[in-house]
Design a binder for these strands. Structure first.
Length: 737
DNA sequence: ATTAGGCGATTTTTT
DNA sequence: ATCGCCTAAT
């Protein structure tokens, strides 16, 4: 293998230092992926069997791309490499070893929505009001308790307030249910293997022995549980190589612990530390800007990034009137740049802090007919029809999965309402049997209406029939026949609306995915498919073969690069994000790292943009430009105000805003983006009876009456097309005429 | 007594 | 767009 002339000396060292602990501190664009790829290829080349190598990556997509490259370098024997995300590798281990913990290998994996459903049910049953205690908050409290290895009893003992006491009660029941359902949540996938290794030393030894060489990418984003796992696994051979960049740690909110990377040398005093500081990705301008920004973080290892690339163009700040203007401006810039730089649409990415921002951008792309793809947002596997079909399939492989059963018990409609469902559940609880079994014995539930009994009977028969067929047919064949017989495809066809046809296609797409999975891995089970799907990330599903502009959150952008990058919504409160006024130093630093990740995705040209006025939570909000803009030297920046004037004349805007800010907009940029947002408050004095407004859907209308205040501000509007409507202004997106 | 359908509330980032 | 709550329909 001849990689010698393709890598610099630090990279070379990182590739060849294969024994003992190694930490590679890799700045953005420093060829980290290339180092990991070559390092693994090198290991295989010097005779290490591929199955003795464990490589943990941040996305499955990264894993499969890397695997293919390695196969290209050293051949098919490298296929046996263990490579994937923490979660998918551990799911694989649990499929084999779960028995020792009392889990069947067909376990279901519950995503955040599934777990929230379980929590809501428990709350409902134990009479804890969802109004009083936010189920989301409880869910995340339970999750963090689990990640600290706190069992329900211990957590209950430590509860300091009523909220924690309630959480503890729910937590305890939650654990029972998941176990009863033969289901694991995302946290369990990390925690259960730790339990397993603690209680079964022989199993631990088996895996320690198998994984003689361990590599971990994006180490700065590992959490405590992942840290413990790695320590356990690497304990025997200590051939551990971690690659990361503390400046790119952006998952503290989910428990990622930056100390894992900062303390690596403490854990492994003999660790060799290799720094990759030459950047091959970005222009000098972009790199300098990123460096200036990250220097504002106190709690940061300092690095000396440099590049031989050219200076490149200045960073352009797009000053926009509102969120629609921002979208329109970005799209027209993309159009211009693609001609000037002879770039394809796929060379552009627009990044933002929150998924909600994608909507205004999307509108602009549609209006100007520029192809785009959104990463994340409303994900494929979060669509109702997909979740329904997945629930059916999960139930087929794991009949204990009550959560999935409840999802589909009345899909398609079987004339079962809430009351009927409750009866089935109490019957099941009384007999301590899974809901599927209760369903099979529907005749015994005397209080059920004949219609309900019949529906349940049919459902039970259907499930029985296909679970028998599972034994003889391939996963793909069974799924197709099963989904067909469920009848939802037929329903979509009958409805015939564009929406239901889209749903029909989505289900077909899912079936195709199953078929492909079966072709690729003939040995694989339906359970494995379902488990894999549950662990797919947004970027895993991103298809970069389309020639289209990519829209994504800054979080999803991690690890990617694009010739031209736009970072939208650089406003205080949005980036850096804060939902209240306080933003503590730690949070601010994480926001800054997120911004840094965004900046360093750009190769040739970087755009920043902000809007003076934006619909946030579907409410007008006026925020000042982000402090992050000021953290870049003026010399590296150029700013445009013209774009905004051109765009704002074409559309309705807010009279009050225009009169107040038109002048400032033409002022010098320096003054402009450092000034403070006006304490202007949109409300009654703007919107009063008689005002003419425009609604996105209903069109033109006249305000008849205004009531309420704050979030509850409402208006009665008479539309010429739709008549009188009572609108909650928080959501109505009214524009003044 | 039950169910189905209308209407209002809901959006930080994610494996 | 989807979920939960309320009310009208059966």
């Amino acid at each position: 293998m001849t990689f010698h002339h393709e890598v610099n000396s630090q990279q070379q060292e990182a590739i060849r230092t294969v024994e003992g602990p190694v930490m590679v501190v890799a700045g953005p664009g420093s060829g980290k992926t290339r180092v990991l790829t070559f390092r693994i290829a090198y290991l295989i080349q010097i005779g290490v069997p591929a199955y003795q190598i464990l490589a943990l990556t941040f996305t499955n997509k990264a894993a499969s791309e890397m695997r293919n490259r390695i196969v290209g370098l050293v051949g098919e024997k490298s296929r046996q490499l263990w490579m994937g995300t923490f979660h998918s590798i551990l799911a694989r281990i649990l499929r084999v070893e779960g028995k020792s913990l009392g889990y069947d290998s067909n376990f279901s994996i519950y995503d955040t929505a599934d777990t929230l459903g379980v929590i809501k049910q428990i709350m409902h049953e134990s009479g804890i009001s969802a109004q009083q205690y936010n189920p989301q908050a409880i869910r995340s409290r339970i999750s963090s308790a689990k990640n600290q290895f706190l069992l329900p009893e211990e957590f209950a003992r430590r509860a300091v307030d009523l909220f924690e006491e309630k959480s503890a009660r729910i937590y305890s029941e939650y654990e029972k249910r998941l176990r009863g359902n033969n289901a694991l949540d995302f946290d369990d996938l990390l925690i259960k293997p730790i339990d397993l290794f603690h209680h079964h030393k022989s199993i631990l030894q088996k895996y320690q022995d198998r994984f003689r060489f361990i590599l971990i990418d994006e180490y700065q984003d590992t959490n405590h549980a992942q840290y413990v796992l790695i320590k356990l696994l690497a304990d025997r051979y200590r051939n551990i190589c971690v690659v990361g960049d503390d400046a790119q740690s952006i998952y503290a909110f989910r428990g990622a612990d930056i100390r894992n990377i900062l303390d690596f040398q403490h854990d492994y005093p003999d660790a060799k530390v290799i720094r990759l500081e030459q950047n091959y990705r970005s222009t000098k301008t972009i790199l300098a800007a990123a460096d200036q920004v990250i220097k504002h973080n106190v709690d940061q290892l300092s690095k000396n990034l440099w590049t031989e690339n050219s200076d490149g163009d200045k960073i352009t700040l797009l000053v926009c009137q509102d969120d629609r203007d921002e979208g329109a401006t970005i799209v027209s810039r993309i159009y211009r740049e693609s001609l000037n730089r002879k770039l394809d649409l796929k060379d552009f990415a627009v990044m933002y802090r929150t998924n909600a921002q994608s909507r205004a951008l999307e509108d602009a792309f549609m209006q100007q007919s520029v192809r785009y793809v959104i990463v994340g947002g409303v994900r494929f596997y979060e669509r109702k029809e997909i979740k329904d079909v997945m629930a059916y399939l999960r139930l087929l492989v794991n009949p204990h999965d009550d959560e999935s059963f409840l999802r589909i018990i009345n899909v398609p409609g079987r004339g079962l309402g809430n009351v009927a469902v409750q009866r089935v559940r109490s019957f099941a609880a009384h007999h301590s049997i899974p809901l599927v079994q209760a369903c099979r014995r529907a005749e015994e539930i005397t209080t059920l209406l004949p219609k309900a009994k019949k529906g349940l009977r049919l459902l039970a028969d259907l499930l029985d029939k296909y679970s028998h067929m599972m034994k003889e047919m391939s996963a793909s064949e069974v799924s197709r026949a099963f989904v067909d017989e469920i009848g939802i495809l037929r329903l979509f066809k009958e409805e015939g609306t564009p929406e239901s046809m889209a749903r029909w296609e989505n289900v077909q797409e899912l079936l195709t995915a199953i078929t492909e999975f079966c072709i690729q891995q003939p040995e694989a089970t339906l359970a494995a498919f379902l488990q894999d799907q549950a662990l797919l990330s947004d970027t895993d599903q991103w298809d970069d073969k389309h020639n289209a502009v990519t829209l994504m959150t800054l979080h999803s952008a991690k690890g990617l690069e694009f010739p031209v990058v736009f970072i939208a919504g650089l406003e205080e409160g949005l980036l850096p994000f804060s939902n209240s006024s306080q933003l503590d130093a730690k949070q601010l630093e994480e926001e800054r790292r997120l911004y840094y990740v965004g900046l360093t995705r750009a190769m040739q040209k970087l755009y920043l943009s902000y809007a003076r006025v934006r619909f946030r939570f579907s409410e007008l909000s006026y925020q000042s430009p982000s402090r992050f803009i000021d953290e870049i030297d003026q010399e590296l920046l150029e700013s445009t105000g013209q774009a905004l004037q051109a765009a704002s004349t074409e559309r309705w805007s807010f009279p009050a805003v225009q009169s107040r800010h038109r002048k400032k907009i033409t002022d010098s940029d320096a003054q402009y983006h450092t000034d403070v947002a006006p304490d202007y408050d949109h409300d009654q004095d703007e919107l009063k009876p008689g005002t003419m407004v425009v609604h996105e859907i209903f069109g033109r209308g006249k305000v008849l009456q205004v009531t309420g205040s704050g979030d509850a501000l409402k208006a009665v509007v008479e539309f010429s097309s739709a008549g009188k409507k009572n609108l909650l202004l928080k959501y109505a997106r009214l524009r003044l005429l």
